[in-house]
Write a protein that binds this DNA or RNA. Structure first.
Lengths: 130, 130
DNA sequence: GCTTGAACTTCCAGTTTCTGGAACCTTTAT
DNA sequence: ATAAAGGTTCCAGAAACTGGAAGTTCAAGC
């Protein structure tokens, strides 16, 4: 599969896919004509990258995440440690998103136009850091 | 409150807070000595920014989000439109995080060491884009 | 009151993560 | 055969920080 199709399937621009290859995040094999050639497995990884990046994981974190299900030679305990670490991060992110969601949906429901900026409920929700 | 305290409370480095002021995202008033002076309301906004950024919203999106609960003079229908737009984005992000979570937790539970790279369940989950 | 160190200020340069564009080659369609 | 579409590399620029220099202000101890 050419880079254009891989881009379409993964949701990443071709430019970005080439960049990821540049920095050694995901290299594709080449066809005889010199074009990059992506397997469906590559595309899965690209999708995975697209998501993880759009959710605020850094490229280095993505590298770790990818290594989790790409590296056959890694010690199982190792995998578990890194993965459960990432699980915690994901759970935190989910909680934060749900809190943001609560702020916004409350905004829509109750605070339109009149007393918004100082709405104590919003302040409360927005302040519920962790 | 000085920038150091604001940084501590918001979870953002002072450098980043100054940068946000540079680009007009959140400007603080100044004390007589020239130091930036943050109200608790400012700190709420900073916390809000910290979260939204770490969850993959761009600075411009954050600007929009902030305007939602900062702008008294905006038409209520306007606010609702932008906010429900953002709600959808947040819901998508939550769904994606939950999918990532499923991938990882399955990895931890079932695919350690032996048949990981081609584990069909992982492929399935990772491929479940939207 | 003086000094020292931490915290503040601005400014400029460098990093990360893309993104756009030029110049050129390959494939596909007419 | 030719034109358009899509691939290649390379280099430059943008977005969002981040580090460091040079100088000012504040708080604490002698």
């Amino acid at each position: 599969m050419n880079i254009g199709a891989a881009a379409e399937h993964s949701g990443l621009p071709a430019k970005t896919i080439r960049y990821y290859e540049d920095i050694g995040l995901l290299r594709a094999s080449r066809a005889m004509n010199g074009y990059r050639d992506y397997t469906s497995d590559d595309v899965h990884r690209l999708k995975f990258l697209q998501r993880a990046r759009s959710l605020g994981f850094t490229v280095e974190e993505c590298r770790q995440l990818l290594s989790l299900y790409a590296d056959k030679n890694r010690d199982s305990a190792d995998v578990k440690a890194i993965a459960s670490n990432k699980l915690d991060e994901i759970d935190t992110k989910i909680a934060q998103l749900q809190s943001l969601r609560a702020v916004l949906s409350h905004l829509i429901a109750n605070c339109h136009g009149n007393d918004r900026p100082d709405c104590p409920i919003i302040d409360d929700l927005a302040g519920e850091a962790h």
